[in-house]
Amino acid sequence: MSSERQGSADTGATPQRESYGPDDGILVVDDLRKEFGGLVAVEDFSFAVEEQEILGFIGPNGAGKSTTFNCVTGFYEPTAGTVWYQGEDVTGRPSHEMVNAGLARTFQHFRPLHDRSVVDNVALALVPDKLFSFGGLRGGTRDRAARLCERVGLGDDLHRTPDELPHAGLLRLELARALATDPTLLLVDEPFAGLAGSEVESISNLLRELREEGLTLVVVDHNMRGLLSLIDRAVVINFGSKLAEGTPEEIRNDEEVQRAYLGGDL
């Protein structure tokens, strides 16, 4: 898909209405709309995520990325529009159901559980949604949690509490917890904020490895630099609507996008 598909609001040309169906990808969002009272945060936003791709979801602050994110993952209920996951209509389903369907997410503002260690944080994600369950700590649950921690690079921090982790460690914890739910699609919310260059590299590698292992990824960020080398494709959002869509090259060269970032460096 190239940038000629998107409409251009200020040239006055009628934006081309895209319409997606449930089979256009593993995650398909069609005409999503979210209003808060009188404020329209997301407006007729559509995109599709192809299986096993790494899709970038880019936009400046306030563009509506997190709102879209939350609508898709079940934390907000959309005002209008449809969300399909693996061909099934999941619009408006609560977040825990989405997770159990295979759609996991991390939080931009990390939300570890401060009352327990890293490994126990991950272990919680391995607990089934049943009232009576005794997986417990001594059982295989703990081993699996430990292995997951190792996978994301927290092998040395198993028994630390989140308070003792550095920023990058907390991000890894978010990833471990999301991975523990055995997802098919992982939405990563602004992972690169606050990371040093080497850590960005490290996390990017981890995400690439996860993709190799079969996971589909959508990475949200407003920092394009870190993102463009990681992703296969990008969707750019501004003021709640799609601004552009295409490969990193296309996005970098797109006029609208450049303008949206105030002629900033891409």
């Binding site: 939080f107 570890p112 049943k130 009576f132 369950s133």
Partner: peptide
Amino acid sequence: SDAGRVFTAIREDEDAVSSVGIN
């Protein structure tokens, strides 16, 4: 049991509990 760790997790952060697939 596992319910206990979910209880305390709810006390900590309900949204985090949702995000790991628990209602």
